[in-house]
Amino acid sequence: MEASQGNHPNPNPNPNRNNSVASSVPVWPTIDGPLGLSEEESVGYARRFYKFGFALLPLLWAVNCFYFWPALRHSHSFPRIRPYVVGSAIGFAVFATLLSSWALTFAIGGERLFGPVWDQLVMYNLADRLGLTGWS
């Protein structure tokens, strides 16, 4: 990777078109191209973020997919990175589905569905009780 890195003097590289080998195989595993991580570093980071995502941090899964988009997009590239990125994509999709289902149910159902508990759970009422609206 470092050898080919020297062949890219362009300060604003496009990661999907940095190929000096083939027209469809990406050279860099991250969207930042040569500014980002090498393949060796990427494996460690992808695994780490994939595992952190299970600590109630699904946004890290989304960031993982975004950062290693070339590995996710091209099915045959970077075989060591891809399992973590695909796992992150699946995890984020599941979590987003669950959370948005709950949030929409809560928002649309409202008091009819949840009864008086709804008034206690809705955030602006809760904020009033806890006195967290000191800013406005």
Binding site: L56, L57, P58, L59, L60, V63, L99, W102, A103, F106, A107, G110, L121, V122, M123, Y124, L126, A127, D128, L132, T133, G134, W135, S136
Partner: peptide, 29 residues
């Protein structure tokens, strides 16, 4: 604090669990 003010201003019926979860993710990331 700013998020809560926005929710209150526009009366967005977001529940406590969702807002805390989003805020936690936002801060850690």
């Amino acid at each position: 604090s700013i998020l809560l003010s926005l929710l209150e201003r526009f009366s967005v019926p977001l529940d406590a669990v969702t807002s805390f979860l989003l805020l936690f993710n936002f801060a850690v990331v």
